[in-house]
Amino acid sequence: MERFNPIVVFMYFALTSGIAMLCMNPIMQTIALVGAALLFLIRRAGRRGGHLPMLAFALLACVINPIFSHNGATVLFFVNGNPFTLEAVIYGAVCGVMLLAMLYWFRSFSALMTSDKILYLLGRISPKIALTVSMALRYVPLFSAQMRKTAQAQRAMGAIRADDSLSRIRGGARVFSVTLTWALENGIVTADAMEARGYGEGRRTSFAIYRFHRRDAALTAVILLLGGGIYYGVFGGFAAYQYYPIVTVRQDTAALLTYGAYALLTALPSTIEAGEIIRWKYLQSKI
């Protein structure tokens, strides 16, 4: 997925998770979770662990909903005279599934969309904001590093005593204010350097290292086709569902087509990733 243009990647995630948020259909939600988890596992996005807290969170939703919601026809038992219904449990479980799917989507998304890719998207909308953010991304670490160095130097000069809290507070305030001065001084030089390189003399263009290749166009077409079909299905009522009083889900051909399309859409990135892995294995075995 890294090889695709960030716009395509962003569009994919927006569309896929958008559908999952709009349609609480239990079958659709299960499909979303399977797709999201598959992509996450294949990419092993970020660190390996971290599943347990997410699972616990989903389980919590499962239990909490029936405590507060007493709708539904199938009463399992009573708590303090309030009915605890199967339907409420199912609804809670689907909510949990949705949360879990969202978390997985988001973790893959943030691993794929690094800061410069987000900046690129921003640059499409407003080059000025993108430049400001880019400069801020550079300045913030610079500022904190300077503050740390100043504090350390002041300590080694005996101007701040780490064992005296009053001196530490006073010194800290002084360090902060002098670092601000430093940042302003720096800003003046940077502004000079920007002007020397022609900033602010006319219309800017916004350059990015990402290009739009044929494969991006192909993926866009597939995503739009599937996505359009699914949205038509969802808003056309083909994937209708209800939880209360009893759980019912449409299962005719039109509904199955919608589910199928969503399954294809959610499986798309994992298929691409798996394809890449297999292709590399194959290439390696030939070499």
């Binding site: 430049l131 880019s134 400069m135 550079r138 610079l142 030089v189 940077t190 350097a193 920007m194 390189r197």
Partner: peptide, 8 residues
């Protein structure tokens, strides 16, 4: 350091 404008 001071002449560099952007982060990449």
């Amino acid at each position: 350091e001071q002449q560099i404008v952007t982060d990449k």
